[in-house]
Amino acid sequence: MQVKVLGPGCKNCVALEKATHEAIDRLGLDATVEKVTDYAEIAGYGVMATPALVVDEKVVSSGRVLTPTAIQELLTSVTAHRAS
């Protein structure tokens, strides 16, 4: 699983990245987390509010700092969706 945190490096983006790592650790997932700070690339995802979260090249959230629990739910639904 490939997870990307989109954001220019503001406080909220750092918070989202931290929460993402925590969610992945809790779930024990094999996932890479990458930070995307380039504006053109961020806009390329159609994202207009940072920070945003991308899972396997699909935008799953934008403009919110999600709690680790909320990210856990998102990641679980993505894995479940893939398995089915």
């Binding site: 220019p8 806009a43 994202v47």
Partner: peptide
Amino acid sequence: TPFCSCSAVPAFIGFVA
């Protein structure tokens, strides 16, 4: 619209594009 000025740049690009 709920909007944080920290998103000014991606929003600007998104609107213009």
